[in-house]
Design a protein around this nucleic acid. Structure first.
Lengths: 132, 132
DNA sequence: TATACTCTCTGTAGTAACTACAGGAACAAG
DNA sequence: CTTGTTCCTGTAGTTACTACAGAGAGTATA
């Protein structure tokens, strides 16, 4: 980890789009970092770690709102393991719900596709099913 | 099915938000329907069927872009069963991909949650994992 | 008929989470 | 010293809607 980098390099290191970093600053997930005399942003290693935390949580599907909650806990320095676990379990439940919704969808679509012979005729069980 | 209705009633019948109908007209999924002399929209039973088709496809997770393709086929009156099946199978593949992504996510989160004892201590395996 | 209430019309802005410009200043290399 | 890359800012676009404001139209009741 570099001790201090500018925005372009940080994006490269962290593996995100350069504009994403500015976006996170705008919505105050990242603090307004130090600047050079000419106004270029300079990121410390703490800033880099925080960005990685954010990106990792996003990869894991946490919304910005959930992430804000998580960061609020971490920033308070008074968070407990139990609080973090609660947010995480909540998120797991959401994901499980999405999975089951998508499975039902897949089933419905597969059933429709099954009934369709895929031939050259302009009469299709899928279209019929969608028109009801 | 009513022979002709206005926007509010159509929304109620079809089970969507009234503004959604105008939106679909704007993006040209629905045609610009007939109006009364004072400018109120009047929907025929064909218009109603088309809206239901659109809403059903959306329920099934087709994006507006996919739907546009589907409607293009149907509107051409020269579509074949095979073409519709291709769009559908494509969509099924996308959904399956999403399901497997979400399952991996769930696994990762569950693993993290497992390692966390949820206690009162300010030292959390989940936070550690997210900071890497 | 007058009034009141509901419905519809229009354009516009807001949502989530970014991404992509444009125009200009600063920095690094040769 | 010039060229090329990086950085700055503000703003607009993406998806699929949803919500609002202000004004006109339609309907029900007194």
């Amino acid at each position: 980890m570099q001790p201090s980098v500018k925005r372009g390099k940080l994006a490269k290191i962290a593996g995100c789009n350069i504009e994403t970093i500015r976006y996170y600053e705008n919505i105050e997930l990242l603090r307004a970092v130090d600047r050079t005399s000419s106004g270029h942003r300079v990121y410390s290693s703490d800033d880099q770690a925080r960005l990685r935390f954010i990106l990792r949580a996003r990869e894991l599907g946490f919304s910005i709102a959930e992430l804000r909650g998580l960061l609020g806990l971490v920033d308070s320095n008074e968070y407990t393991c139990g609080e973090v676990l609660a947010v995480t379990n909540n998120h797991i439940t959401t994901i499980q719900q999405k999975i089951s919704d998508l499975k039902r969808l897949e089933q419905t679509l597969s059933d429709m596709a099954q009934k369709c012979d895929g031939g050259e005729v302009p009469d299709c069980a899928i279209v019929d099913a969608m028109f009801h």
